[in-house]
Design a protein around this nucleic acid. Structure first.
Ligand SMILES: [Mn+2]
Ligand SMILES: [Mn+2]
Ligand SMILES: [Mn+2]
Ligand SMILES: [Mn+2]
Lengths: 236, 236
DNA sequence: TATAAAAGTTAGGTTAATCTAACAAAAATT
DNA sequence: AATTTTTGTTAGATTAACCTAACTTTTATA
Protein backbone atom coordinates (compact mmCIF):
# COMPACT_ATOMS: atom_id res chain seq x y z
CA UNK A 1 0.00 0.00 0.00
CA UNK A 2 1.22 3.46 -0.88
CA UNK A 3 0.66 6.62 1.14
CA UNK A 4 -0.74 9.71 -0.56
CA UNK A 5 2.74 11.26 -0.25
CA UNK A 6 4.42 8.31 -1.95
CA UNK A 7 1.80 8.46 -4.70
CA UNK A 8 2.59 12.12 -5.28
CA UNK A 9 6.30 11.33 -5.57
CA UNK A 10 5.59 8.73 -8.25
CA UNK A 11 3.39 11.13 -10.20
CA UNK A 12 6.04 13.84 -10.02
CA UNK A 13 8.74 11.37 -11.06
CA UNK A 14 6.76 10.35 -14.14
CA UNK A 15 6.02 13.94 -15.07
CA UNK A 16 9.60 15.16 -14.68
CA UNK A 17 11.19 12.17 -16.35
CA UNK A 18 8.94 12.70 -19.35
CA UNK A 19 10.27 16.24 -19.59
CA UNK A 20 13.89 15.11 -19.13
CA UNK A 21 13.37 12.90 -22.11
CA UNK A 22 17.07 12.20 -22.67
CA UNK A 23 17.38 9.39 -20.14
CA UNK A 24 14.30 9.95 -17.99
CA UNK A 25 16.44 10.47 -14.91
CA UNK A 26 15.57 12.97 -12.22
CA UNK A 27 17.53 14.91 -9.57
CA UNK A 28 16.77 15.42 -5.89
CA UNK A 29 16.41 19.21 -6.12
CA UNK A 30 14.24 19.00 -9.19
CA UNK A 31 11.84 16.72 -7.33
CA UNK A 32 11.91 18.96 -4.26
CA UNK A 33 10.97 22.03 -6.30
CA UNK A 34 8.13 20.19 -8.02
CA UNK A 35 6.69 18.83 -4.79
CA UNK A 36 7.20 22.03 -2.82
CA UNK A 37 9.36 20.41 -0.13
CA UNK A 38 13.01 20.69 0.89
CA UNK A 39 15.73 18.54 -0.71
CA UNK A 40 16.38 16.95 2.69
CA UNK A 41 12.79 15.74 2.78
CA UNK A 42 13.10 14.24 -0.69
CA UNK A 43 16.32 12.52 0.31
CA UNK A 44 14.50 10.81 3.17
CA UNK A 45 11.71 9.64 0.91
CA UNK A 46 14.12 8.36 -1.74
CA UNK A 47 15.34 5.77 0.76
CA UNK A 48 11.80 4.59 1.41
CA UNK A 49 10.94 4.47 -2.29
CA UNK A 50 14.10 2.49 -2.96
CA UNK A 51 13.25 0.01 -0.19
CA UNK A 52 9.87 -0.49 -1.82
CA UNK A 53 11.60 -0.98 -5.19
CA UNK A 54 9.71 1.90 -6.75
CA UNK A 55 12.89 3.69 -7.85
CA UNK A 56 16.49 2.85 -8.76
CA UNK A 57 18.83 5.15 -6.93
CA UNK A 58 22.36 5.33 -5.53
CA UNK A 59 23.76 8.04 -3.27
CA UNK A 60 24.67 11.12 -5.34
CA UNK A 61 23.24 9.41 -8.39
CA UNK A 62 20.16 10.22 -10.44
CA UNK A 63 16.70 8.86 -9.71
CA UNK A 64 15.04 6.47 -12.15
CA UNK A 65 11.54 5.15 -11.62
CA UNK A 66 11.23 1.35 -11.88
CA UNK A 67 8.70 -0.65 -13.92
CA UNK A 68 6.71 -1.25 -10.78
CA UNK A 69 6.89 2.40 -9.75
CA UNK A 70 5.71 3.50 -13.15
CA UNK A 71 2.82 1.05 -13.07
CA UNK A 72 1.60 2.50 -9.78
CA UNK A 73 2.20 6.06 -10.91
CA UNK A 74 0.18 5.61 -14.07
CA UNK A 75 -2.66 4.21 -11.99
CA UNK A 76 -2.69 7.46 -9.97
CA UNK A 77 -2.67 9.51 -13.17
CA UNK A 78 -5.60 7.44 -14.42
CA UNK A 79 -7.55 8.15 -11.25
CA UNK A 80 -6.69 11.84 -11.38
CA UNK A 81 -7.84 12.26 -14.95
CA UNK A 82 -11.00 10.21 -14.50
CA UNK A 83 -11.99 12.37 -11.53
CA UNK A 84 -11.23 15.51 -13.53
CA UNK A 85 -13.51 14.22 -16.25
CA UNK A 86 -16.24 13.46 -13.71
CA UNK A 87 -15.99 16.92 -12.18
CA UNK A 88 -16.09 18.59 -15.57
CA UNK A 89 -18.69 16.44 -17.32
CA UNK A 90 -21.03 15.64 -14.46
CA UNK A 91 -20.57 18.25 -11.77
CA UNK A 92 -20.07 21.15 -14.17
CA UNK A 93 -16.80 22.33 -12.69
CA UNK A 94 -14.83 24.56 -15.00
CA UNK A 95 -11.68 23.51 -16.73
CA UNK A 96 -9.46 25.37 -14.27
CA UNK A 97 -11.20 24.12 -11.10
CA UNK A 98 -10.95 20.38 -11.62
CA UNK A 99 -7.25 19.82 -10.98
CA UNK A 100 -7.22 20.92 -7.34
CA UNK A 101 -10.11 18.66 -6.36
CA UNK A 102 -8.74 15.73 -8.38
CA UNK A 103 -5.49 16.05 -6.40
CA UNK A 104 -7.48 14.90 -3.37
CA UNK A 105 -9.80 12.37 -5.00
CA UNK A 106 -6.95 10.59 -6.80
CA UNK A 107 -5.69 9.18 -3.48
CA UNK A 108 -8.88 7.28 -2.75
CA UNK A 109 -7.67 3.82 -3.63
CA UNK A 110 -10.48 1.43 -4.46
CA UNK A 111 -10.22 -0.47 -7.75
CA UNK A 112 -13.96 -1.06 -8.10
CA UNK A 113 -14.62 2.65 -7.63
CA UNK A 114 -12.33 3.56 -10.50
CA UNK A 115 -13.64 0.88 -12.84
CA UNK A 116 -17.23 1.90 -12.16
CA UNK A 117 -16.41 5.57 -12.56
CA UNK A 118 -14.74 4.83 -15.89
CA UNK A 119 -17.86 2.97 -17.00
CA UNK A 120 -20.16 5.72 -15.74
CA UNK A 121 -18.19 8.28 -17.73
CA UNK A 122 -18.32 6.06 -20.82
CA UNK A 123 -14.64 5.16 -20.87
CA UNK A 124 -13.35 8.60 -21.71
CA UNK A 125 -10.03 8.79 -23.55
CA UNK A 126 -9.15 12.37 -22.64
CA UNK A 127 -9.51 14.49 -19.54
CA UNK A 128 -10.87 18.07 -19.71
CA UNK A 129 -7.39 19.37 -20.55
CA UNK A 130 -7.06 16.99 -23.45
CA UNK A 131 -4.59 14.72 -21.68
CA UNK A 132 -4.84 11.01 -22.37
CA UNK A 133 -6.43 8.84 -19.67
CA UNK A 134 -4.42 5.61 -19.24
CA UNK A 135 -6.66 2.56 -19.61
CA UNK A 136 -7.35 0.04 -16.84
CA UNK A 137 -4.30 -1.99 -17.85
CA UNK A 138 -2.14 1.10 -17.41
CA UNK A 139 -1.67 1.42 -21.13
CA UNK A 140 -1.46 4.90 -22.54
CA UNK A 141 -2.78 4.97 -26.07
CA UNK A 142 -0.43 7.07 -28.14
CA UNK A 143 -2.27 9.63 -30.16
CA UNK A 144 -0.86 11.01 -33.34
CA UNK A 145 -2.35 14.37 -32.73
CA UNK A 146 -2.48 16.97 -35.45
CA UNK A 147 -3.52 20.56 -35.13
CA UNK A 148 -6.72 21.85 -36.68
CA UNK A 149 -4.59 23.88 -39.07
CA UNK A 150 -3.74 20.61 -40.84
CA UNK A 151 -7.38 19.89 -41.69
CA UNK A 152 -8.67 20.34 -45.21
CA UNK A 153 -11.87 21.88 -46.50
CA UNK A 154 -14.84 19.57 -46.06
CA UNK A 155 -13.15 17.50 -43.37
CA UNK A 156 -14.77 16.69 -40.02
CA UNK A 157 -12.44 16.39 -37.06
CA UNK A 158 -12.74 15.88 -33.33
CA UNK A 159 -11.07 18.26 -30.91
CA UNK A 160 -8.96 16.29 -28.43
CA UNK A 161 -6.57 18.72 -26.75
CA UNK A 162 -5.02 22.15 -26.62
CA UNK A 163 -1.36 22.98 -27.14
CA UNK A 164 -1.28 25.04 -23.96
CA UNK A 165 -3.55 25.41 -20.99
CA UNK A 166 -3.57 29.17 -20.47
CA UNK A 167 -6.62 31.03 -19.26
CA UNK A 168 -6.73 33.34 -22.27
CA UNK A 169 -6.83 30.42 -24.70
CA UNK A 170 -9.47 28.68 -22.65
CA UNK A 171 -11.72 31.72 -22.42
CA UNK A 172 -11.32 32.34 -26.12
CA UNK A 173 -12.33 28.76 -26.92
CA UNK A 174 -15.24 28.94 -24.53
CA UNK A 175 -16.57 32.11 -26.16
CA UNK A 176 -16.38 30.46 -29.56
CA UNK A 177 -18.23 27.39 -28.29
CA UNK A 178 -15.20 25.17 -28.76
CA UNK A 179 -14.04 22.46 -26.34
CA UNK A 180 -12.70 18.94 -25.96
CA UNK A 181 -14.68 16.31 -27.85
CA UNK A 182 -16.51 18.80 -30.04
CA UNK A 183 -16.80 17.93 -33.69
CA UNK A 184 -15.59 20.60 -36.10
CA UNK A 185 -16.18 20.69 -39.83
CA UNK A 186 -14.01 22.85 -42.05
CA UNK A 187 -16.14 24.91 -44.45
CA UNK A 188 -13.60 27.19 -46.02
CA UNK A 189 -9.99 28.26 -45.64
CA UNK A 190 -9.02 31.82 -46.60
CA UNK A 191 -5.91 31.61 -48.79
CA UNK A 192 -4.75 35.03 -47.61
CA UNK A 193 -4.30 34.42 -43.86
CA UNK A 194 -5.32 30.75 -43.60
CA UNK A 195 -8.19 31.66 -41.29
CA UNK A 196 -10.89 29.01 -41.24
CA UNK A 197 -14.65 28.98 -41.44
CA UNK A 198 -15.76 26.02 -39.41
CA UNK A 199 -19.00 24.49 -38.26
CA UNK A 200 -19.44 23.73 -34.55
CA UNK A 201 -22.77 22.57 -33.17
CA UNK A 202 -24.40 23.67 -36.42
CA UNK A 203 -23.03 27.19 -35.98
CA UNK A 204 -20.51 28.68 -38.39
CA UNK A 205 -17.57 30.52 -36.84
CA UNK A 206 -14.31 31.97 -38.08
CA UNK A 207 -11.03 31.22 -36.38
CA UNK A 208 -7.52 32.51 -37.02
CA UNK A 209 -4.67 30.28 -38.18
CA UNK A 210 -2.93 31.02 -34.91
CA UNK A 211 -5.83 29.53 -32.97
CA UNK A 212 -6.10 26.58 -35.37
CA UNK A 213 -2.46 25.79 -34.65
CA UNK A 214 -3.25 25.48 -30.95
CA UNK A 215 -6.07 22.99 -31.26
CA UNK A 216 -5.25 19.30 -31.48
CA UNK A 217 -7.70 17.20 -33.44
CA UNK A 218 -8.14 13.69 -34.72
CA UNK A 219 -10.00 12.53 -37.77
CA UNK A 220 -13.69 12.16 -36.92
CA UNK A 221 -14.03 8.83 -38.66
CA UNK A 222 -11.14 7.08 -36.93
CA UNK A 223 -12.42 4.59 -34.39
CA UNK A 224 -8.96 3.70 -33.13
CA UNK A 225 -7.54 7.09 -32.49
CA UNK A 226 -4.06 5.71 -31.93
CA UNK A 227 -3.90 4.68 -35.54
CA UNK A 228 -5.15 7.96 -36.81
CA UNK A 229 -2.69 9.26 -39.34
CA UNK A 230 -1.57 5.79 -40.34
CA UNK A 231 -4.26 4.41 -42.63
CA UNK A 232 -7.67 5.89 -43.00
CA UNK A 233 -7.14 9.33 -41.55
CA UNK A 234 -7.06 12.21 -43.98
CA UNK A 235 -5.15 14.45 -41.61
CA UNK A 236 -1.51 14.75 -42.44
CA UNK B 1 -8.65 22.43 9.12
CA UNK B 2 -9.34 18.98 10.47
CA UNK B 3 -7.33 15.85 9.76
CA UNK B 4 -9.12 12.69 8.60
CA UNK B 5 -8.45 11.22 12.03
CA UNK B 6 -10.01 14.16 13.83
CA UNK B 7 -13.01 13.93 11.51
CA UNK B 8 -13.45 10.28 12.41
CA UNK B 9 -13.38 11.13 16.11
CA UNK B 10 -16.16 13.68 15.64
CA UNK B 11 -18.29 11.22 13.68
CA UNK B 12 -17.80 8.55 16.35
CA UNK B 13 -18.59 11.05 19.09
CA UNK B 14 -21.88 12.01 17.43
CA UNK B 15 -22.81 8.38 16.82
CA UNK B 16 -22.06 7.23 20.36
CA UNK B 17 -23.62 10.23 22.07
CA UNK B 18 -26.83 9.63 20.13
CA UNK B 19 -26.86 6.11 21.52
CA UNK B 20 -26.07 7.28 25.08
CA UNK B 21 -29.11 9.45 24.82
CA UNK B 22 -29.28 10.20 28.55
CA UNK B 23 -26.79 13.04 28.55
CA UNK B 24 -24.95 12.49 25.29
CA UNK B 25 -21.67 12.02 27.11
CA UNK B 26 -19.05 9.55 26.01
CA UNK B 27 -16.19 7.69 27.71
CA UNK B 28 -12.61 7.21 26.59
CA UNK B 29 -12.79 3.42 26.33
CA UNK B 30 -16.07 3.53 24.48
CA UNK B 31 -14.51 5.80 21.86
CA UNK B 32 -11.40 3.62 21.68
CA UNK B 33 -13.47 0.49 20.99
CA UNK B 34 -15.49 2.27 18.30
CA UNK B 35 -12.45 3.64 16.52
CA UNK B 36 -10.37 0.49 16.90
CA UNK B 37 -7.51 2.18 18.74
CA UNK B 38 -6.14 1.97 22.26
CA UNK B 39 -7.51 4.16 25.09
CA UNK B 40 -4.10 5.80 25.39
CA UNK B 41 -4.37 6.95 21.79
CA UNK B 42 -7.80 8.41 22.42
CA UNK B 43 -6.49 10.20 25.47
CA UNK B 44 -3.84 11.88 23.32
CA UNK B 45 -6.41 12.99 20.80
CA UNK B 46 -8.82 14.29 23.45
CA UNK B 47 -6.25 16.92 24.36
CA UNK B 48 -5.97 18.04 20.76
CA UNK B 49 -9.75 18.10 20.29
CA UNK B 50 -10.13 20.11 23.47
CA UNK B 51 -7.50 22.63 22.31
CA UNK B 52 -9.47 23.04 19.09
CA UNK B 53 -12.65 23.53 21.16
CA UNK B 54 -14.35 20.59 19.49
CA UNK B 55 -15.11 18.85 22.78
CA UNK B 56 -15.67 19.73 26.43
CA UNK B 57 -13.56 17.50 28.60
CA UNK B 58 -11.84 17.41 31.98
CA UNK B 59 -9.41 14.78 33.21
CA UNK B 60 -11.31 11.67 34.36
CA UNK B 61 -14.52 13.31 33.21
CA UNK B 62 -16.83 12.39 30.36
CA UNK B 63 -16.48 13.71 26.83
CA UNK B 64 -19.11 16.04 25.39
CA UNK B 65 -18.96 17.31 21.84
CA UNK B 66 -19.30 21.11 21.50
CA UNK B 67 -21.62 23.03 19.16
CA UNK B 68 -18.69 23.65 16.84
CA UNK B 69 -17.61 20.01 16.98
CA UNK B 70 -21.08 18.85 16.17
CA UNK B 71 -21.34 21.25 13.26
CA UNK B 72 -18.16 19.83 11.72
CA UNK B 73 -19.18 16.27 12.50
CA UNK B 74 -22.54 16.63 10.81
CA UNK B 75 -20.78 18.02 7.75
CA UNK B 76 -18.72 14.79 7.56
CA UNK B 77 -21.88 12.70 7.94
CA UNK B 78 -23.44 14.70 5.12
CA UNK B 79 -20.46 14.01 2.87
CA UNK B 80 -20.44 10.33 3.80
CA UNK B 81 -24.11 9.85 3.02
CA UNK B 82 -24.01 11.84 -0.20
CA UNK B 83 -21.12 9.71 -1.45
CA UNK B 84 -22.98 6.56 -0.45
CA UNK B 85 -25.93 7.77 -2.46
CA UNK B 86 -23.68 8.52 -5.43
CA UNK B 87 -22.08 5.09 -5.28
CA UNK B 88 -25.44 3.37 -5.03
CA UNK B 89 -27.47 5.45 -7.48
CA UNK B 90 -24.87 6.26 -10.11
CA UNK B 91 -22.09 3.70 -9.87
CA UNK B 92 -24.40 0.76 -9.09
CA UNK B 93 -22.59 -0.33 -5.97
CA UNK B 94 -24.66 -2.57 -3.74
CA UNK B 95 -26.08 -1.51 -0.45
CA UNK B 96 -23.38 -3.29 1.55
CA UNK B 97 -20.43 -2.02 -0.52
CA UNK B 98 -20.98 1.71 -0.28
CA UNK B 99 -19.96 2.36 3.33
CA UNK B 100 -16.34 1.29 3.01
CA UNK B 101 -15.68 3.52 0.01
CA UNK B 102 -17.60 6.44 1.52
CA UNK B 103 -15.30 6.20 4.57
CA UNK B 104 -12.51 7.37 2.27
CA UNK B 105 -14.39 9.84 0.09
CA UNK B 106 -15.92 11.65 3.08
CA UNK B 107 -12.52 13.11 3.97
CA UNK B 108 -12.14 14.98 0.70
CA UNK B 109 -12.96 18.44 1.94
CA UNK B 110 -14.11 20.77 -0.80
CA UNK B 111 -17.37 22.63 -0.25
CA UNK B 112 -18.11 23.14 -3.94
CA UNK B 113 -17.64 19.44 -4.59
CA UNK B 114 -20.26 18.51 -2.01
CA UNK B 115 -22.76 21.15 -3.13
CA UNK B 116 -22.42 20.08 -6.75
CA UNK B 117 -22.67 16.42 -5.84
CA UNK B 118 -25.84 17.13 -3.87
CA UNK B 119 -27.28 18.93 -6.88
CA UNK B 120 -26.21 16.16 -9.27
CA UNK B 121 -27.97 13.60 -7.07
CA UNK B 122 -31.07 15.79 -6.92
CA UNK B 123 -30.80 16.74 -3.26
CA UNK B 124 -31.45 13.31 -1.85
CA UNK B 125 -32.95 13.16 1.65
CA UNK B 126 -31.90 9.61 2.50
CA UNK B 127 -28.81 7.52 1.85
CA UNK B 128 -29.06 3.92 0.57
CA UNK B 129 -29.51 2.66 4.15
CA UNK B 130 -32.42 5.02 4.75
CA UNK B 131 -30.44 7.35 6.99
CA UNK B 132 -31.19 11.06 6.73
CA UNK B 133 -28.70 13.23 4.84
CA UNK B 134 -28.13 16.49 6.73
CA UNK B 135 -28.77 19.50 4.49
CA UNK B 136 -26.14 22.04 3.48
CA UNK B 137 -26.87 24.12 6.59
CA UNK B 138 -26.15 21.08 8.73
CA UNK B 139 -29.79 20.72 9.61
CA UNK B 140 -31.10 17.24 10.03
CA UNK B 141 -34.76 17.08 9.13
CA UNK B 142 -36.42 15.07 11.83
CA UNK B 143 -38.61 12.40 10.42
CA UNK B 144 -41.46 11.03 12.39
CA UNK B 145 -40.99 7.62 10.96
CA UNK B 146 -43.63 4.99 11.37
CA UNK B 147 -43.40 1.38 10.38
CA UNK B 148 -45.40 -0.03 7.52
CA UNK B 149 -47.38 -2.03 10.08
CA UNK B 150 -49.04 1.25 11.10
CA UNK B 151 -50.49 1.84 7.65
CA UNK B 152 -54.17 1.29 6.94
CA UNK B 153 -55.92 -0.38 4.04
CA UNK B 154 -56.01 1.85 1.00
CA UNK B 155 -53.16 4.03 2.15
CA UNK B 156 -50.11 4.85 -0.01
CA UNK B 157 -46.82 5.28 1.79
CA UNK B 158 -43.18 5.85 0.87
CA UNK B 159 -40.49 3.57 2.19
CA UNK B 160 -37.72 5.63 3.80
CA UNK B 161 -35.63 3.31 5.97
CA UNK B 162 -35.19 -0.07 7.57
CA UNK B 163 -35.10 -0.79 11.28
CA UNK B 164 -31.89 -2.81 10.92
CA UNK B 165 -29.32 -3.19 8.19
CA UNK B 166 -28.74 -6.95 8.20
CA UNK B 167 -27.98 -8.87 5.05
CA UNK B 168 -30.92 -11.23 5.49
CA UNK B 169 -33.39 -8.36 5.68
CA UNK B 170 -31.83 -6.66 2.70
CA UNK B 171 -31.89 -9.76 0.53
CA UNK B 172 -35.48 -10.45 1.53
CA UNK B 173 -36.51 -6.90 0.58
CA UNK B 174 -34.63 -7.14 -2.68
CA UNK B 175 -36.37 -10.36 -3.64
CA UNK B 176 -39.73 -8.77 -2.92
CA UNK B 177 -38.84 -5.75 -5.04
CA UNK B 178 -38.87 -3.43 -2.05
CA UNK B 179 -36.37 -0.66 -1.37
CA UNK B 180 -35.83 2.92 -0.22
CA UNK B 181 -38.11 5.46 -1.94
CA UNK B 182 -40.51 2.86 -3.29
CA UNK B 183 -44.18 3.67 -3.01
CA UNK B 184 -46.29 0.99 -1.35
CA UNK B 185 -50.07 0.80 -1.31
CA UNK B 186 -51.86 -1.34 1.25
CA UNK B 187 -54.53 -3.50 -0.41
CA UNK B 188 -55.60 -5.73 2.42
CA UNK B 189 -54.62 -6.70 5.94
CA UNK B 190 -55.33 -10.25 7.17
CA UNK B 191 -56.98 -9.97 10.58
CA UNK B 192 -55.55 -13.34 11.63
CA UNK B 193 -51.79 -12.65 11.45
CA UNK B 194 -51.79 -9.01 10.30
CA UNK B 195 -49.97 -9.96 7.10
CA UNK B 196 -50.40 -7.40 4.35
CA UNK B 197 -51.21 -7.47 0.68
CA UNK B 198 -49.46 -4.51 -0.82
CA UNK B 199 -48.89 -3.06 -4.25
CA UNK B 200 -45.32 -2.24 -5.31
CA UNK B 201 -44.52 -1.16 -8.85
CA UNK B 202 -47.98 -2.36 -9.88
CA UNK B 203 -47.24 -5.82 -8.53
CA UNK B 204 -49.16 -7.29 -5.60
CA UNK B 205 -47.10 -9.01 -2.91
CA UNK B 206 -47.77 -10.38 0.54
CA UNK B 207 -45.57 -9.52 3.50
CA UNK B 208 -45.61 -10.70 7.08
CA UNK B 209 -46.35 -8.42 10.01
CA UNK B 210 -42.83 -9.03 11.23
CA UNK B 211 -41.43 -7.60 8.01
CA UNK B 212 -43.90 -4.70 8.06
CA UNK B 213 -42.62 -3.77 11.50
CA UNK B 214 -39.11 -3.43 10.11
CA UNK B 215 -39.93 -1.03 7.30
CA UNK B 216 -40.09 2.68 8.05
CA UNK B 217 -42.48 4.66 5.90
CA UNK B 218 -43.87 8.16 5.57
CA UNK B 219 -47.21 9.20 4.22
CA UNK B 220 -46.97 9.47 0.43
CA UNK B 221 -48.83 12.75 0.25
CA UNK B 222 -46.68 14.63 2.77
CA UNK B 223 -44.42 17.09 1.05
CA UNK B 224 -42.70 18.13 4.24
CA UNK B 225 -41.75 14.79 5.65
CA UNK B 226 -40.74 16.29 8.97
CA UNK B 227 -44.30 17.29 9.63
CA UNK B 228 -45.69 13.96 8.69
CA UNK B 229 -47.77 12.70 11.55
CA UNK B 230 -48.66 16.19 12.70
CA UNK B 231 -51.36 17.42 10.36
CA UNK B 232 -52.15 15.79 7.07
CA UNK B 233 -50.58 12.42 7.52
CA UNK B 234 -52.88 9.51 8.09
CA UNK B 235 -50.19 7.37 9.65
CA UNK B 236 -50.46 7.16 13.41
C1' DT C 1 -16.79 0.37 53.81
C1' DA C 2 -12.90 -2.07 52.06
C1' DT C 3 -11.46 -4.14 48.06
C1' DA C 4 -11.65 -5.65 43.38
C1' DA C 5 -12.75 -4.39 38.72
C1' DA C 6 -13.25 -1.06 35.24
C1' DA C 7 -12.10 3.14 33.29
C1' DG C 8 -8.85 6.55 32.37
C1' DT C 9 -4.06 8.63 32.39
C1' DT C 10 0.92 9.00 31.93
C1' DA C 11 5.48 7.96 30.44
C1' DG C 12 8.19 6.55 27.01
C1' DG C 13 8.71 4.67 22.31
C1' DT C 14 7.84 4.24 17.01
C1' DT C 15 7.03 5.79 12.24
C1' DA C 16 6.03 8.97 8.33
C1' DA C 17 6.67 13.32 6.89
C1' DT C 18 8.31 17.47 7.40
C1' DC C 19 11.92 21.17 8.75
C1' DT C 20 16.85 23.84 9.49
C1' DA C 21 21.63 24.00 9.56
C1' DA C 22 25.85 22.12 8.54
C1' DC C 23 28.45 19.43 5.57
C1' DA C 24 30.17 16.74 1.27
C1' DA C 25 30.38 15.66 -3.53
C1' DA C 26 29.94 16.80 -8.34
C1' DA C 27 29.77 20.04 -11.97
C1' DA C 28 30.79 24.30 -13.98
C1' DT C 29 33.67 28.25 -14.53
C1' DT C 30 37.57 30.83 -14.42
C1' DA D 1 44.00 22.75 -12.11
C1' DA D 2 41.89 25.53 -8.70
C1' DT D 3 37.92 27.60 -7.24
C1' DT D 4 33.18 28.52 -7.04
C1' DT D 5 28.54 27.11 -7.60
C1' DT D 6 25.21 23.73 -7.65
C1' DT D 7 23.53 19.63 -6.07
C1' DG D 8 22.85 16.25 -2.73
C1' DT D 9 23.41 14.23 2.14
C1' DT D 10 23.45 14.00 7.16
C1' DA D 11 22.29 15.07 11.79
C1' DG D 12 19.09 16.51 14.83
C1' DA D 13 14.19 18.40 15.77
C1' DT D 14 9.18 18.50 15.43
C1' DT D 15 4.36 16.89 14.96
C1' DA D 16 0.41 13.65 14.43
C1' DA D 17 -0.98 9.30 15.27
C1' DC D 18 -0.27 5.31 16.92
C1' DC D 19 1.59 1.65 20.50
C1' DT D 20 2.79 -0.94 25.41
C1' DA D 21 3.36 -1.00 30.14
C1' DA D 22 2.71 0.95 34.37
C1' DC D 23 0.06 3.74 37.15
C1' DT D 24 -4.19 6.27 39.18
C1' DT D 25 -8.89 7.33 39.77
C1' DT D 26 -13.59 6.05 39.83
C1' DT D 27 -17.16 2.72 40.23
C1' DA D 28 -19.14 -1.50 41.56
C1' DT D 29 -19.64 -5.27 44.68
C1' DA D 30 -18.76 -8.37 48.35
MN1 LIG E 1 -4.78 17.74 -13.29
MN1 LIG F 1 -2.02 14.24 -5.40
MN1 LIG G 1 -22.07 4.44 5.98
MN1 LIG H 1 -14.01 8.08 7.88
Amino acid sequence: MLSATEENYLKALIKISEKNSVDGKVGTNELAVDLGVKPATVNDMLKRLKDKKLIDYEKYGKIKITKSGKKSGIEIIRRHRLWETFLFDKLKFTWDEVHEVAELLEHVNNPKLIERLDEFLNHPQFDPHGDVIPNSKGKIIIHFKKTLSNAKVGQAVKMVAMKENSDVLLKHLFELGLGINKTLKVIKIQPFDLSMNILVDKKAITISNKLAENIFVVCKECKVIGECNKKMCELE
